[in-house]
Design a protein around this nucleic acid. Structure first.
Length: 257
DNA sequence: ATGGACTCTTTGTTTCCAGC
DNA sequence: GCTGGAAACAAAGAGTCCAT
């Protein structure tokens, strides 16, 4: 019931609006709170009934930092990884899920919020912290460094000076560094022969400097000893700012041990 | 140093309705 | 009553930008 209430409050009862970022709309004079809540419960109950008829499969959920997996997983215990990690795109998912996180008790203080954010791969300027140093993992990666330099040069050329904009280049390096750290750490957890699939999208969120996320991730994985099996096109999305088609790809890897 | 706020286009979904 | 296409309608929309 609590989960349904949090869902209903955020999505239909409140005046929140969701877009690339969450915003506050005009206050509603009234809302059918109980009705919307019961509807949300109904949907969840139906899902549970339907799933209950299927073959039961054990599932374990860990809440942990993907860059420090040995804390929660046994060495050489994983055969497959299928995931959609963040993209370097200036989206802060702790913001879009903030109200639920508080309502459900996952965040109670600002310190807890910070702790949650610091456990995430850096992917936007709002979760960059002064002590961050994941960028050292890509210090020798020429293309990541070139992109970061281009973003910074573009920022200076355009005369952009806000705190966010000044962090664009750093956030980019921290993103790929964090993903490199994750892939490096993961090697100990994987069983030889394990296969991996990462859905990632190209981005041009930082002053329209193109970031070929899939290509770069595959390149980093290869340098860490992974075999790159494929970079499949998943779909394209139209970037409204540049009117260009942006690729979303599945990077398929194998860890041969 | 670091959490907060705004807004418009594209895109997917639903509704409507003429024609059968 | 059914259906395909058009119009209407929203939309957790892989952005971008300062205020405390």
């Amino acid at each position: 019931e609590r989960l349904a209430l949090a869902q209903a409050i955020v999505s239909s009862i409140s005046n929140l609006h969701f877009g690339p970022e969450v915003g506050v709309g005009r206050a509603k004079p009234d809302a059918p709170v109980v009705d919307l809540w019961l509807k949300a419960i109904d949907i969840m109950a139906n899902d549970l009934r339907e799933l209950g008829q299927r073959v039961p499969v054990e599932a374990i959920v860990h809440h942990a930092d993907s860059r420090q997996l040995l804390n929660v997983l046994e060495p050489q215990s994983i055969d497959a990884v299928i995931t959609s990690p963040p993209y370097p795109n200036e989206k802060d998912y702790t913001r879009t899920t903030r109200l639920e996180s508080v309502l459900l008790g996952f965040i109670n203080t600002k310190a807890e919020l910070r702790s949650l954010k610091q456990g995430l791969v850096r992917s936007n300027t709002r979760n960059v912290y002064a002590i961050d140093d994941d960028d050292r993992w890509v210090a020798d990666h020429a293309e990541v460094q070139r992109i970061a330099n281009e973003i910074e040069a573009r920022r200076i050329a355009l005369g952009k000076t806000s705190g966010f904009e000044r962090l664009y280049a750093r956030a980019t390096k921290l993103y790929f560094g964090g993903m490199a750290r994750h892939l490096a750490d993961l090697r100990q957890i994987l069983r030889p022969g394990a296969q991996l699939a990462y859905v990632v999208g190209d981005q041009a969120s930082y002053l329209r400097v193109m970031i070929r996320t899939g290509q770069l991730l595959a390149d980093i994985a290869r340098s860490l000893g992974y075999e790159v099996l494929a970079i499949d096109l998943f779909r394209t999305r139209l970037a409204t700012a540049t009117n260009e088609q942006m690729r979303e790809e599945v990077v398929v890897l194998r860890w041969n041990g």
